[in-house]
Design a protein around this nucleic acid. Structure first.
Lengths: 258, 258
DNA sequence: CGTAGATTTGAGATCAATCAATTCCTGTGG
DNA sequence: CCACAGGAATTGATTGATCTCAAATCTACG
């Protein structure tokens, strides 16, 4: 990933563009933190919201910096990353459209947040949002639900990081991205799934606790074995989703119970 | 760890003992999900609560099983574990006193829960608790806060799993347990910290994504290097907490900002 | 004292990291 | 239109940390 020095921070923020949109037309209206809001509640949110745009590669915020806003990803992908003093990094969250950024009741960012692709966020100044959350159970309820989902996802990822082989890790990541795309595009379950990888090999490595060379080797191996097809470096086809899940070490049935 | 077959499930539940206690005297009164409750709210909680006791090694619940209660750990330690079909396991949560178990709005357990030590839980039947949560913002607020804390802990652990060496992993686990004990016992920060490891080498391995042999070797190495002292297998002394944190790859200052 | 489980220790194998080129894209300028 | 630059990605050779398999010790308890 392109190195970005700390000094660029203010400049990056100034490059952010502002756009506007009605909540009614918002693509994440029914999945974001505002999903349960009634129209009067939405109106009050409209008053304190503003959009911010980031280009691929831009820092949204540095870990430890003051964070005076919270918000939702509207489009694009952002990543949460932790860094050790010696430079080792681990991605700890992949923020997709509708995911929530920031923590009510905390002043400083706990992680680096980077725009992995071009990114649009719907932001709220933190204090007005916190006040509104106090008075609006619909927001707090939805935030709790989303946080519990994130916790489940984080725990799922702990299994990947702690116990899976490099090949299984890659297959796991691909199957998560594929599943998300399948949900959005709602194809028949036996049709091949096609998508563009939104991550560089290095970002994949940071997510998976691997080196980029190992990511590359395992991508090649999965391709050679017919588990995936690649056109260019980023365009992926999954001919057989069950096969991919098997390679990921997951139940083909997705582990769904009762 | 002792193997427990699925068939033992009902029997184990029947072995649970029941005890009673006033919330006012409860050791976790001010840290659990009920921390923010007023006395009238506590009274209503008292009506729907009951205690369950488990012996070290007992299953609290199997992943996928119907879970008709939620609750808090009162004393002892429980662990959340994920298992792959081929038997590889990863611990994804270590539940200490005051930690919350279960998820409102979900019917089936997502993980195996095991009593790692003798364990006492304060339980609520799920439906009454959910109803009460709707009417009691203090509970929902506290649960959100606790869930956000757990998410942070999970992300911290992702860095450990993904990027740290075996030695750093062990040091990280010891420093977490040591810090917790230091918080409870409130010693001077330069006095040596002493505690009993509540985990077997195998449980440590499951937490850290290692084999138990590697855990054992690294414990021996840390002992040889004077980072820790061992009396017996479980009784640990940390002569120099800063040194341990350094071995864990963490900032000695604990990363505290502003 | 004997047994079983927990733990340690040893030797060798293996998977992923590291170091080192090389190739593939994509966008730019001649 | 093509050559070239530079980052992204691939591939190769080697190293090394951790796993695996195996055996020996320790410890608690009947």
């Amino acid at each position: 990933m392109t190195q970005i020095k700390r000094g660029d921070h203010a400049m990056l923020n100034e490059r952010s563009l502002t756009v506007h949109q009605q909540c009614d037309d918002c693509p994440i209206r029914h999945r974001a933190v505002c999903a349960r809001c009634e129209s009067d509640e939405l109106e009050r949110l409209e008053e304190i919201k503003y959009y911010r745009k980031f280009e691929a590669g831009q820092m949204v915020i540095w870990s430890g910096d003051k964070m005076d806003f919270v918000g939702s990803v509207v489009s694009g992908i952002a990543s949460l990353t932790q860094t050790m003093e010696d430079g080792r990094t681990q991605m700890v969250g992949l923020l997709l459209p509708s995911d929530f950024v920031g923590r009510p009741g905390r002043d400083n960012a706990a992680y680096d947040i980077v725009a992995t692709t071009d990114l649009v966020m719907c932001c709220f100044r933190k204090t007005p949002f916190e006040n509104m959350m106090m008075r609006t159970p619909h927001i707090a309820q939805r935030l709790l639900e989303m946080t519990l989902d994130e916790l489940d996802a984080a725990r799922e990822w702990m299994l990947v990081l702690g116990r899976k082989t490099a090949r299984e890790k890659i297959a796991s990541l691909l199957s998560i991205i594929a599943r998300r795309d399948a949900t959005l595009n709602m194809r028949g379950s036996d049709a091949p799934i096609v998508f563009d990888l939104p991550l560089t090999r290095e970002a994949m490595a940071d997510y998976l606790g691997l080196t980029l060379e190992t990511v590359s080797r395992q991508m090649s191996a999965l391709k050679k074995d017919g588990v995936i097809t690649l056109e260019g470096k980023r365009h992926v086809t999954i001919p057989d989703m069950d096969r991919l899940m098997q390679e990921a070490g997951d139940d083909a049935d997705g582990g769904m119970l009762a």
